[in-house]
């Protein structure tokens, strides 16, 4: 028995890598369809957008890169789908330098492909990328055209119908930032206090704990934390919009709900490894204490 625990403690890490690979890949190939329970911050985010009125303007900021796209893409897509179905107009921008614009372009193309009635410049506008996020946000607080003189296709802001009557962030009802870095936090610390605009953040799971402080203080109206948050959002959308219930059950594309199967299996495997490792460690410690005595 002691030999077995010693072997566990000294297990070649390549075995662990193989277990991790199998536990993530298998549920993607063979989905389990585990249930998703919703949490308060996600429900608050969802209900806040639900309470907006037709024609209201929402800003969706892509503040993440490809490294966290599997977590952030589904939440950005879910919020965009909700805005489109609620007939809210949305402005898209990207402030993350390492690929934020490419992801924004892809998500916009995906959603407009799903909902061909959306009209560029009328129902939505993609402003593209601008460097210097903190300064860009502050500038948008005073004058959006000052930060983004044209949209991503080079069309002047003044010629875009959606932007008529939207001079600065004070005319925007909400900022949703899908974020992987400090940029998301700047929307809360730089823009919210100065402009008063409500902010919802969609951070990666690893950075979500930080934002509970902002939720508690009321500086955030909601949070869609990591893949779990995105899966919760998809579940709320499925419950509210029948057309999305069909979409999310039939789509072959990656969704957070599908990703949660893999994450659940991986969490289970890591927990088992943790328990095994600790049991083996405690037994070894007891054995060496006995030997010393």
């Amino acid at each position: 028995m002691a030999g077995l625990f010693e072997r566990i403690v000294n297990l070649d890490r390549r075995w662990i890598f193989l277990i991790v690979l199998l536990s993530v890949a298998t549920p993607i190939v063979i989905p389990i369809g585990l249930p998703v329970t919703t949490t308060g911050p996600t429900r608050a985010a969802f209900e806040f957008i639900e309470a907006l009125h037709e024609g209201d303007v929402v800003l969706i900021s892509f503040d993440y890169g490809p490294s966290s796209a599997p977590e952030n893409d589904p939440m950005a897509e879910a919020v965009m789908r909700q805005c489109a179905l609620k007939k809210l107009r949305f402005i898209v921008c990207a402030l993350y330098p390492l690929g934020g614009l490419g992801l924004a372009n892809n998500v916009v193309a995906k959603i407009t492909g799903e909902l061909p009635n959306l009209r560029d410049g009328v129902d939505y506008v993609n402003l593209g990328y601008k460097d210097g996020p903190a300064a860009v946000m502050r500038r948008m607080g005073d004058d959006i055209a000052g930060a983004f003189p044209t949209d991503v296709h080079g069309k002047p802001i003044s010629e875009i119908p959606l932007m008529k009557g939207v001079h600065d962030l004070r005319q925007v009802k909400l900022v949703f930032t899908a974020a992987t870095s400090l940029i998301g936090e700047w929307w809360i610390t730089q823009v919210h206090p100065q402009v008063g605009i409500p902010v919802i953040i969609g951070p990666t799971a690893v950075s979500a704990p930080k934002y509970y402080a902002y939720l508690n203080s009321g500086q955030l109206v909601g949070m869609v934390g990591g893949m779990k948050g995105a899966a919760e959002y998809e579940s709320l959308l499925r419950a509210r919009y029948p057309q999305l219930a069909t979409f999310y059950t039939t789509t072959r594309a990656f969704t957070a709900t599908k990703g949660m199967d893999g994450q659940t299996v991986l969490h289970t495997v890591i927990l088992l490894l943790l328990v095994l490792g600790n049991v083996a460690y405690l037994r070894q410690r007891r054995a060496s204490a006995k030997a010393r005595a």
Partner: peptide, 23 residues
């Protein structure tokens, strides 16, 4: 090119985190 490369590098974290958690 860019997106798959960045995703690959970041996904390696899952393997190292699992291994580190165990050890």
């Amino acid at each position: 090119f860019f997106q798959p490369l960045q995703s690959t590098i970041f996904s390696l974290l899952a393997f190292f985190m699992a291994s580190a958690a165990f050890r």
